[in-house]
Nucleic acid binder design. Structure first.
Lengths: 143, 143
DNA sequence: AAAAACAACTTGCAAATAACAAGTTAATAT
DNA sequence: ATATTAACTTGTTATTTGCAAGTTGTTTTT
């Protein structure tokens, strides 16, 4: 059996464990939600993120943004429209979490009671996952 | 631009947001680690999981196992070897998180300092992700 | 030009959650 | 019969989160 080959006996785990290391950065309730909303809903400012991540506290959002910036997943820039605003932009490192997020989304669609399964981009995604992800990632990186 | 088409303005978020709903279940530090260790390291009992998830507290492991069972991601069975043991087994719902976990792993390999990138199954995975995931999922489900 | 409003936070505190150490119960091994 | 293993549970303490309110700098309104 294939799995037998894969099972690593007595591995020492983190560090050295990629999934554990990834979860050290985004293994909480809000980090992935923030990144998801930045990618798929085009949110780029503090107040936009506050509204789109329903239920997040202001201090938590601030601390998550700082943590994600420190981890190199996003950057803070002055907003072109106004000096009062700050524009949060994902780095390539942040954008490249999209494949994982898309898989999470598909899992949710398969197993969780989701109402809004019928929108256009969900259909596109299910038709051709690879192409969908590639296209969005490229769009975001070419900016 | 493609993204423009995808951005949903003024969405009401959770519930109705698949990623948010998924993170309500596995959006913490330990749940995905537990599932990952069950799938890729063949851990199936409380003590095995305690050792493989380095640093998890006993009460947290117990509560996560209960939560994941309640959410239908795994089941508790009496272990064939001994009545003293309990065998935790992933359901299809749990197994199907593997694609998301694999994407997280690949992301970590791309951006995080991981030592053990050279093992055989990591190479196989990078060569053919789809086939790799499919094979493991099928192995696990045919039990 | 002054006042109100907005944007991005910070601060203080109560409540919830997690980590740590120790103890409990049932089953097996010696 | 005794010791050990397995799977927890139960305090207790430390950390994190959630909530309300306040702060600072920048625009917008009057």
């Amino acid at each position: 059996m294939f799995l037998q080959f894969c099972i690593v006996k007595e591995s020492k785990q983190r560090p050295g464990d990629p999934v554990g290391s990834a979860l050290d950065i985004v293994g909480d309730k809000w980090s992935l939600m923030i990144i998801w909303n930045m990618i798929m809903h085009g949110k780029h400012t503090y107040n936009e993120l506050l509204k789109s991540n329903e239920g997040i506290a202001t201090n938590i959002l601030a601390s998550r943004l700082a943590k994600l910036e420190a981890a190199g997943l996003l950057t803070k820039e002055t907003h072109p429209d106004s000096k009062a605003k700050i524009l949060y932009r994902l780095t390539h490192k942040g954008i490249d979490l999209l494949p994982a997020l898309v898989e999470l989304m598909l899992w949710a669609h398969a197993y969780l009671p989701i109402h809004s399964a019928g929108d256009a981009y969900t259909k596109l995604l299910k038709q051709n996952k690879e192409a969908f992800v590639k296209r969005i990632v490229e769009d975001l990186k070419n900016k």
